[in-house]
């Protein structure tokens, strides 16, 4: 478990030691996405829009802040497609001719696992970045490195 965790969420050294105000803003980007996720619960797009607005608001921030805003944004972007599909599938079962199949149940379980793991990773990142520790996720961290310019 610990081995897996070390690969999925890495705590790397950042180029510089972020100061107090940067750590707070970076941590807020994760916290805000959690609040938006819960506030817009059935709709999968609410927290993505919220992250985009937060990213735009902090586009002139320091590198550490922008890096974590980008990572929070990217991680939600991939979940959007999975959740949207599940959402409309559910709607079509509720109001359309579709019936619950084992494929549907399997898909819902998959997106639940993905959402819960993202939820836990977001909480963990919010706590760690608040302390000024640079948290780099599997895949999304590398993607953020490519997108976010210093």
């Amino acid at each position: 478990m610990e081995h897996l965790q070390r690969h999925l969420i890495m705590e790397n050294k950042f180029d510089y030691q972020p100061s107090e105000h940067e750590a707070e803003k970076a941590s807020n980007s994760y916290l805000m996405s959690l609040i938006a996720l819960i506030a817009g619960m059935p709709l999968p797009i609410i927290n993505l829009i919220a992250s985009v607005i937060f990213f735009i608001g902090n586009r002139k921030g320091t590198y550490f802040v922008r890096w974590h805003c980008t990572q929070a944004l990217l991680s939600q972007f991939s979940l959007l497609f999975m959740n949207s599909f599940g959402f409309w599938w559910t709607i079509s079962i509720m109001f359309g001719p579709e019936t619950i199949s084992s494929k549907y149940i399997g898909y819902i379980i998959t997106i639940l696992i993905f959402n819960i793991s993202e939820f836990i990773a977001t909480i963990y990142s919010a706590v760690q970045t608040r302390k000024g520790i640079h948290v780099k996720w599997f895949f999304y961290g590398n993607l953020t490195n490519l997108i976010c310019k210093a």
Partner: peptide
């Protein structure tokens, strides 16, 4: 949504 973002 913007309201929630602005709280932060």
């Amino acid at each position: 949504i913007w309201t929630i973002v602005d709280w932060f």
